[in-house]
Design a binder for these strands. Structure first.
Lengths: 275, 275
DNA sequence: TAAAAATACTCCATAGGTATTTTAT
DNA sequence: ATAAAATACCTATGGAGTATTTTTA
């Protein structure tokens, strides 16, 4: 049921050496042990990972896939353990999540300067799960854009992001300085996606071929912008609110400190996303 | 040495329940087993994860960190295993890596249409490791931007990306239609970063406060663009070459098929990055 | 004093070792 | 004929169980 990291390491060794004996040497274990462990792994999974004869060892399709997965799994487990060990030595850590296109470098630099002992990580949010990382502890604070589910979150509005139309350079409206919603009547409007059904890249592709016009917050447009698109503000579309958010249950010192600095830096100079 | 996924699951249960007995029930094991497994995990790691009395169980700092790491590790192992199982059932998979700002949706849609049985994944490359994923098997083909290390790779040039200057809206040169390198004399030029020492966001921040001018390929500028920046082509800066790349050792059918379609679609309509 | 974690002890599955056999080139 | 993987068999570690003790709010 659980994937065994030891077996996974053994598997990687055999896959890379294409040879049980050499892999066993490399792992400092006896060759029969390795044979048995790989068989056991194959039984756990329910399918073969190698096609073996006494003269050759080759990966199956599943084996190829497992090899590429194993490399990243082992590396990320290592990295995770490193961070946990750091935490055990008292290193503090703050994960700041942000929706694409929101400016976070300024408050983070301010925080870094004042709390040099706190490691700050960045986590780019997906538009279809803005709030989940704040709930499950992957992130401590987040810069989000409405709409999102704010139950259980402390939300501090920090500004509004104006809506822009995103259209191909060649479009008849592309040279306008501003637009109104009425100008878009009859166009196929692709608004901010509500499901993760298809990739955001696909939506932009639909815009590129001229089938649709995108209507989205300026920050999103900026984050995904392409040279062949024009972006025109839509003056009477309701701007979306941008917010700082934290899970209500999180009341750690470093989180309060970050919020204080972040809201202060708002006063000092507005973020890009702020009106 | 190896992190035990079973123990990790147990740990998550205790952390979430804040109670050994309830966690044991949830896991369908006896409470003493759980006590011993958690102790064993703590011994493996070398530090405590919980502060416990008979009345309360609380996470230590290291425990907090491990909890947030565990959630993502367990989820990504699950996802990895799912992909491996799919592979064992004959599902083919193609991972297309791309440097930020390179248009890949078109060839991928063409490939999807013709080979609907091949799952296509996207992997956004970091500018400091464009080629590594092609070597270690994380990606099958890549859309890269020079410079990168091409030893052992098959490289197909697909176009050139013009250099643009990236500067604050308020800069004296921001309204120019084009620039020449000579115009930038005396400016603090931040060229395409060569090390991962500091985040790319920091560099853009330096530009925002007016300390520097960025000089970068148009595609990168587009991918990271912000509303308050102006982008002006620099006509006499050497454009960077954009390429399709594959590890020479990879000669699978689906990879050849993708390359064929991708180069064909170049003829049909140039990519955004192509001159 | 009572709820809850820890300890003591069993049993058995499995990782690891050595010696040997099987098999495909 | 031989290199290399698989099998047989042994030991010891560690996971899981039940019964019991320890601890502190």
């Amino acid at each position: 049921m659980d994937l065994d990291m030891r077996k996974l390491r053994y598997f990687v060794a055999v896959a890379e050496q294409q040879h049980f004996g050499r892999a066993a040497d490399q792992l400092y274990i006896a060759q029969p042990v390795l044979s048995r462990q790989i068989r056991s792994l194959e039984q756990d999974l329910g399918f073969a990972l190698f096609e073996r004869t006494t003269r050759s060892v080759h990966l199956t399709a599943a084996g190829e896939q497992l090899l590429s997965e194993a490399v990243v799994v082992l590396a990320s487990v290592d990295a995770a353990l490193r961070r946990v060990r750091e935490a055990s030595r008292g290193v503090e850590r703050l994960v700041v999540a942000f929706s694409p296109g929101m400016g976070v470098s300024k408050p983070i630099r301010a925080f870094n300067a004042q709390y040099p002992n706190v490691e700050v990580d960045l986590l780019q949010l997906k538009w279809w799960e803005q709030d989940a990382p704040l709930r499950d502890g992957r992130a401590d604070v987040g810069y989000l854009r409405r709409p999102f589910d704010d139950t259980g979150l402390r939300v501090i509005p920090i500004g509004r992001d104006r809506m822009v139309a995103c259209l191909p350079d060649s479009h008849r409206l592309a040279r306008r300085r501003t637009l109104r919603m009425a100008d878009l009547d009859g166009e196929n409007i692709l608004d901010q996606p509500a499901r993760r059904t298809s990739s955001i890249e696909e939506k932009f592709e639909l815009i590129a071929v001229g089938h649709s016009i995108g209507l989205m917050p300026r920050g999103i447009a900026a984050a995904y912008s392409r040279p062949e698109f024009a972006y025109v503000p839509v003056t009477d579309a309701e701007p979306v609110e941008t917010c700082l958010a934290v899970a209500k249950s999180r009341r750690e010192r470093r989180i309060r400190d970050f919020l204080r600095l972040a809201t202060a830096s708002l006063q000092a100079r507005p973020l890009a996303a702020v009106d």
